[in-house]
Simulated assay, not measured.
Amino acid sequence: MTVTGRASILGTRGRRLSVGGAAVGRILGQQPIGTALVTPYVVFLAAVFAYPLAFAVYMSFHDYFFAAPGAIVERPFVGFDNYVTVLSDPAVRRSFANVGIFLLINVPLTVVLSLVLAASLNAAIRWRTFIRVSYYVPYVTASVAVVGVWLFLFNSNGLVNSVLGPLAPDPSWLVNSKLAMPTVAIYVTWKQLGFFILLYLAALQNVSKDLYEAAAMDGADKWKSFWNVTVPGVQPATTLVVLVATITGANLFTEPYLLTGGGGPDGASASPVLIMYQRGIEQGNPDIGSAIGVLLVIGVLLLALIERRFVGREDR
């Protein structure tokens, strides 16, 4: 073989390797190692979240019902009939109103309390580490155990009513149609507060101390420093806290299920996820439950976009 022939073959191979490398580069991106490390989590998300969501959308448009494994049954396409059934159900409409009340109480309370407590715990105080752990303990404690304490505190003969005496509500907190959901919202705020405090504590480490010193030199007191330095400095964390609290609150299930015996009294504390469980699992109508779930996802996405637009506008 001549030298020219070998050069031609090597040139052809080089072009093929170049084309192949470009194709791999387009697939893996500029950071192939990072892409390889992220791929298992992407597969996990697709298997655990994307596929169930797609299947839920499919069920919501069909007359779907549970059948024996391996059984071949007809599940005809019904269009929007399941959605019409869901939207005409008073219990479903009330559950969405309930979760709206919950979010109106829980989200602002979570943001304010977690930010104020985080700013306090970020200062040089005695027993700071112990207090931080104390706030975080309810978050990592099993809900069943913590619910038992709250039932002891807020039942008709509980400690709270004993302290309030004649001022105690009648009916009591968790069996009162007007107070059941606010009580659940306060409980969830208290239980999850430690997690959001940690988020704010991490954000406070990025706020320069020079800003506080400059504010002090300008004559700002602690309140003005907090409002003009701390609050703007942790704005990205506030956006995250609002979004996480909203998504978590919209998926409320365990707390009303345990605290109020399944959304009582008379559905006053029922959440969409609880109704979805009752319709889809207990009553054997997964198509109806899926329709509720799809509507909930759409509602949460719209709410998150609105919050991101208004709460997170200072991040940009």
Rank of each mutant, 00 (worst) to 15 (best):
R128C: 02
S60V: 06
S208K: 11
I306H: 01
I298T: 09
I186K: 01
E74W: 05
G299I: 03
W190C: 01
S120A: 14
M276W: 05
P182S: 11
T110I: 13
I275H: 03
T183N: 08
T183A: 15
G262S: 05
V300F: 10
V86F: 07
F226Y: 10
I298D: 07
Q31V: 05
F44A: 13
I292S: 00
L243S: 12
T12L: 15
L104P: 03
V273G: 01
L240P: 00
F61G: 10
F65Y: 14
A97D: 04
L167T: 00
G5W: 09
V78A: 01
V311L: 01
T230C: 03
L174A: 03
V43G: 06
E282C: 00
Y83R: 05
S8I: 12
L28R: 06
S8C: 11
N82A: 12
G34M: 10
P182Y: 12
R132G: 14
T110C: 08
L103K: 03
G70D: 13
S88H: 13
Y277F: 14
A97I: 14
R13M: 12
T246W: 00
L103I: 09
I275W: 05
D81G: 01
Y51T: 09
L303Q: 12
A68D: 15
T141Y: 10
K178W: 15
A291R: 03
V184E: 02
L87I: 12
L53T: 13
L151W: 03
V175E: 03
V92P: 01
L153S: 08
T230H: 06
F49N: 08
V112C: 05
W227E: 06
T260M: 07
R128E: 04
V242L: 02
P108A: 10
V48Y: 06
V24R: 09
S18K: 07
F226D: 04
I125V: 14
L204G: 00
K224Y: 06
S269L: 09
F80G: 11
L259C: 08
L37I: 14
V38G: 02
I105D: 03
A36Y: 05
L37M: 15
R15D: 02
E282V: 15
R6G: 08
A291Q: 04
L243G: 01
N161A: 11
S290D: 05
L45K: 00
G261E: 13
A203W: 00
I306L: 15
S88M: 07
E74R: 12
L259I: 03
N106S: 11
I288R: 02
V149N: 11
R279N: 10
Y136H: 05
L117A: 10
F77V: 08
P256D: 09
D81C: 00
Q283V: 01
T189G: 01
N251Q: 13
V116E: 06
A291L: 08
V273H: 07
P69Y: 14
A118W: 02
G148P: 08
L201I: 09
D315Y: 01
R13D: 02
G100C: 08
E213G: 02
R126W: 14
I33H: 10
R316N: 07
G34E: 12
P32K: 12
T248Y: 10
Q31M: 07
A220E: 05
A118H: 02
S134D: 06
P265T: 05
T85F: 11
A91L: 13
W223V: 11
A56Q: 03
Q283D: 13
P32I: 11
L303T: 15
M1R: 10
Y41K: 01
P76N: 09
